[in-house]
Structure formats: C-alpha cells, structure tokens
C-alpha cells in the first residue's frame, strides 16, 4: 500500500551572508494512511525545517530545496501549482501549533478565529456552508477536543483561557476541515507535565477514532512512546535510525538514539537509583 505522505530524498540548504549550510541531507520518511509516526531529534536537527517544507511554509530564499519529492496522496507537492498547494494547507493536511500562548490571535474571539479559518477552507474546497453552519461546526470541534463548555469557550478571547485550554483550541483549529494528515509540532511543551500528558492522550484518541495519519515532531522520546508506533530519528539533517517504536526503544542501534533514550525523564514506572 502506498503511503499518504512520502518524503523522498529531500535536500535543503540555507544561504545567509554568502554562506551556505545544508540543513537537510536526502531525508526520506513515510506516513501511511492512519499511521502514527514520530520524527524525533534535538533542536537544530532539521525536524522543524522538514515540517515547514511539508506544510509549504518555508521561506525561499533564504532556503533552497535542491532535490527530493514530497508525495502526498499521489501528487508531488513540490511541483504542484501554488494555488493547489494552498488549497491543501489547513484542509487535507493540517498542523497543531506548538505554543498555545502565542499561536492564537489576542484580539479576536476563539469563535471568530475558527470560523474565519473555516470560511476560507470551505471556499477553497468549494464547500457551501453558511455562517450558522460554520458556527455549529466550530462548537462541534470544540466539543471533540473535550471542552467542557464549548459555547462559552467560543465566546472567549485567548487571554481568558488557560494554557491547556488554548492548546486544545489549537488542536480544534487543526481538525476543523477534517484533515487526513495531522502534523503536530511538539504540542504542549510549553505546558506543565500533567497538562501535556492530557493533551497527548487527547491527540492520540482523536487520531485513532477519526482514523487520521499523525506526524509527531518532537525532541522528547517520552512523547514518541506515548503517541507513535513508528519512529524516525534525525540528527544533523539526516535520518540516522528508524523502526517500530517498541523495537527502537528495546534495541536502539545508534549511539545517538541511545543517548536520546538515556536523556528521557521517566514519567512512569518505579524510581531507579
């Protein structure tokens, strides 16, 4: 079976002040339909750039894509006309942003922001939905991310919500147009450990019940274990190791992976001295 998302031999470099740095070196990874895949690496390993290229958010220049293909649903995103590229963004593939404090517009209500996104997504998909329909959908999605009082949350400004609630809003934002692929950028890192665990559980449940494909981007192997069944390890712009999550944790082949695993703070299990 072909994968929903398949990155093949992607190479990207950055040019600033006359210096060129290669940030991605022939990166290949696959996210099959309905699978939960993690891309893990330290900051600066190239995982964020990979995510931005997939979403089409990379500023070019200074970045330049040398080689590779990004196949999504049988089409190469890199050769797709800009209009069709934009049409996919936020609809077929969608993103959960990392920082709940800064990723919501402070001067508009949650409902306003979500309906605006929905309105233009609908327009791109040629879907006909009126104002009331959009509102109903927003409330529905807020309920899906287990908001206790979705009506009230919809009326709120971001500043009136807690960090955990805002992170849920960001997940709701990603789910609005029933995407097939969800890219999550370390959701919850800015939150406390308990809230983050809740967010991750919510995300996993949503992905499983709705049959979405998930690409989880993180530096934390604890998160990987919680949310994925297949994992790619990235270091200095290259995929250095990949494999089913359980197997990789049991028998890491690379020293780099072993170091990463050793660095995970233990959330569960007994305290070892």
């Amino acid at each position: 079976m072909t994968a929903l998302l398949s990155v093949q031999g992607l190479s990207v470099s950055f040019s600033t002040y006359g210096r060129t740095v290669e940030v991605l070196k022939a990166v290949s990874l696959e996210v099959p339909q309905g699978a939960q895949v993690a891309l893990v690496g330290e900051s600066g390993s190239g995982k964020s750039v990979t995510m931005k290229v997939i979403m089409g958010l990379l500023a070019q220049p200074p970045a330049r894509i040398h080689a590779g293909r990004i196949m999504f649903d049988g089409r190469d995103l890199l050769t797709l006309p800009e209009r069709e590229r934009v049409a996919l963004r936020g609809t077929a593939m969608s993103m959960v942003f990392q920082d709940p404090m800064s990723s919501l517009n402070p001067v508009w209500t949650i409902e306003d922001q979500l309906t605006t996104i929905l309105k233009y997504a609908d327009r791109r998909l040629g879907r006909d939905r009126d104002r009331r329909g959009r509102r109903a959908r927003v409330i529905e999605v807020l309920a899906q991310v287990r908001m206790r009082d979705p009506e009230r949350v919809a009326q709120s400004f971001p500043i009136m919500l807690s960090g955990g609630m805002r992170q849920r809003v960001l997940i709701a934002m990603a789910l609005l147009s029933e995407p097939r692929l969800l890219i999550a950028d370390e959701p919850g890192t800015a939150l406390d450990v308990t809230t983050q665990a809740q967010i991750l559980k919510l995300l996993r449940d949503l992905v499983e019940t709705q049959g979405l494909a998930l690409l989880m981007i993180t530096h934390n192997l604890g998160v990987v274990r919680e949310t994925s069944n297949y994992v790619y390890v990235m270091n200095k712009g290259e995929i250095v190791e990949e494999g089913p999550t359980a197997g990789l944790f049991a028998a890491p082949r690379q020293q780099y992976t072993r170091d990463l695993i050793a660095a995970v703070p233990r959330l569960t299990g007994r305290v070892t001295s």
Partner: peptide, 17 residues
Amino acid sequence: RQDYIEAARAFGVPDRV
C-alpha cells in the same frame, strides 16, 4: 513576526484578510 500570523498562514487564511 508573531506566531499567530504564521498560524493563520498555515491554515490558508488569505493574505488580504
């Protein structure tokens, strides 16, 4: 330069809006 502008872009909100 704020994240929420980048987020709006990622969700396909048009330039003008």
